[in-house]
Design a protein around this nucleic acid. Structure first.
Lengths: 144, 144
DNA sequence: ATGTATGCAAACGGTTTGCACGGTC
DNA sequence: GACCGTGCAAACCGTTTGCATACAT
């Protein structure tokens, strides 16, 4: 955690970006979140520590962090963006009912080369799986 | 094509939905499109044949067709929805530069069972791959 | 004749932007 | 002190919604 924050400061300095409380808190919040929060959720959480922060700054900081490759934006079927810190290769489980996003890994898949038509298409950078369905909590809740 | 339109009419009747010019033209447009058009693009194309159609109707019809399982909505990283007719199991290639979406198939993957942690998560309905990168046309264009 | 679908216009929600002030370097 | 980052407010864009009319059944 500490080393990731130090890493954050270094990356900012390298790119001539100022280290502000807002940026630190937003990045820290994403480091400690596991629920892929929306912009609004990040805003609400950071606001507890920095009561005067505005949501514009959250938007701007998230865009900046994404461009620097330190976080990832996930565009969900809900139509709003959600974020996660850049943390290892993984894929996503998405519950169509509660909209919760859960990570999972699939090393067998990661090691597979895509079919030849993909190579002839162009230069693939990332291959991600999204599995959608209904999570256990939601299906049990509906049973009742 | 004809049989798919007949199928469309049957499905409408089954669900008590009226068969209007607008609905027919929008569905026909998606059947003959391969480029996963946005709502705006569908609107512009259908407008040539039905000059008085409004974009609201396009939205409403697309929502209706999706709910009926006849088309699929794709939420892109651009933040806008794009659509395709329901046509066989496939995955998507997305060019980060021109935003073109191309289909590809990967039967080996489709036949694979997800890792056990997915089953313990809940009931998976769909598993989709999105490969992102730069398509050949775009990388050649940038070379110059 | 009934009731749903359409078109119009206005509202909506997430996101972006222009500007003057404030904070970092 | 110079300049980038912030907060405020307004604009923006894709999408949704309320309502009266038009159309399919």
């Amino acid at each position: 955690m500490h080393e990731r924050l130090a890493d954050f400061e270094n990356r900012c300095r390298e790119n001539g970006l100022k280290i502000t409380h807002q940026r630190l808190e937003i990045y820290r919040e994403l480091l400690s979140s596991t629920d892929h929060p929306s912009v609004e959720a990040i805003f609400q959480r950071v606001r507890r520590r920095l009561p005067t922060i505005s949501i514009d700054t959250v938007y701007r900081t998230l865009a900046m962090l994404e461009q620097a490759g330190m976080i990832h934006r996930i565009q969900t079927s809900e139509g709003l963006a959600r974020y996660e810190s850049d943390y290892g290769l993984h894929h996503h489980l998405f519950c169509n009912n509660c909209h919760e996003i859960v990570d999972f890994t699939w090393e067998l898949f990661d090691a597979m080369a895509p079919p030849p038509e993909v190579e002839s298409w162009g230069a693939a950078r990332k291959k991600n799986i999204v599995i959608t369905g209904i999570c256990r909590q939601c299906s049990e809740r509906e049973q009742k």
